[in-house]
Amino acid sequence: MATLEQLEARQKQIQMQIQKKKRALAAEERKARNHALMVAGGLLMQHAPGGDWKRVDWDRLAEWIGRYGYKISECEAEELPMADAAKRLRSWERKK
């Protein structure tokens, strides 16, 4: 039978593994979200004046999105787990 000290050491190891896994999952989520934001920004910039982001009036764009951004909800799909949502996005990118 394990001693109390051995069990406490094992508990500490498991807690460290849990923390490491949580950090890895958070990093994976952040990476997938950043990718989605870059794709969305790219879609937006395709329609920038002359295709040049340097010509965008950001105040007017923010105002326009504030006025018409609700229409984005018309593009809603089922919510997927992060990995599946990332696959859906990459699949869409390949089709372009």
Rank of each mutant, 00 (worst) to 15 (best):
D57E: 05
Y70H: 12
G50P: 04
R88W: 01
A83E: 14
E76A: 15
I14C: 02
R30I: 05
L80I: 07
R60Y: 02
Q11M: 07
R90P: 00
V39T: 01
K31A: 06
I65Y: 06
M45S: 03
W92M: 07
A36R: 05
H35Q: 12
G50A: 09
H47W: 09
I72R: 12
G66P: 00
A9R: 07
G51T: 04
W64P: 00
M38G: 03
L37A: 06
L80R: 10
L80Y: 07
R90N: 07
V56K: 00
R88H: 01
P81C: 05
L43A: 10
E28Q: 06
R90L: 08
A9N: 04
E63C: 04
S91L: 10
A36K: 10
L89F: 07
K54P: 01
E28T: 11
K22H: 05
A24G: 05
E93K: 12
M82K: 08
K12H: 08
L4P: 02
A27V: 09
M1A: 15
E79M: 08
V56I: 14
Q17R: 15
G51R: 02
W92G: 06
R55A: 08
K95L: 06
W58P: 01
A9L: 08
M16P: 00
A40T: 11
E78W: 06
Q6I: 07
G50E: 07
E8D: 09
E63K: 04
E5H: 05
E29I: 01
M45L: 15
M1H: 14
K96V: 09
A40Q: 03
W92T: 10
E78H: 15
D59L: 07
D52L: 11
E93Q: 14
K31T: 03
I72G: 13
R60N: 13
L89A: 00
E79S: 13
R94W: 06
E79Q: 15
R55E: 05
K22G: 03
M1T: 12
I18M: 08
Y68A: 01
K31Y: 02
G50S: 11
G51N: 06
R33Y: 08
K31G: 00
A9S: 02
S73Q: 15
V39A: 00
L25F: 00
E79A: 14
D84M: 10
A26M: 14
R10Q: 14
K20Y: 03
A24W: 10
D84V: 03
G42W: 01
V39I: 08
E28Y: 07
L25E: 06
Q13F: 03
T3H: 00
E74I: 07
P81I: 03
L44A: 02
V56H: 04
G66D: 02
A24I: 12
I14V: 15
L80N: 08
Y70T: 04
W64E: 04
Q19R: 15
K96S: 05
I65A: 14
L43C: 14
K20L: 04
R10I: 04
W64F: 05
Q15H: 12
A36V: 02
E79D: 14
W64R: 09
I14D: 09
W92D: 06
I65G: 10
Q11S: 11
Q13H: 08
H35T: 06
R94A: 12
K31I: 03
G50H: 11
T3D: 00
P49A: 03
A2E: 13
G51K: 13
W92N: 11
K54E: 11
M45Q: 09
L80K: 11
R88I: 05
Q17K: 14
Q15K: 13
A2N: 13
I18K: 10
M82Q: 15
Q11I: 09
I65M: 12
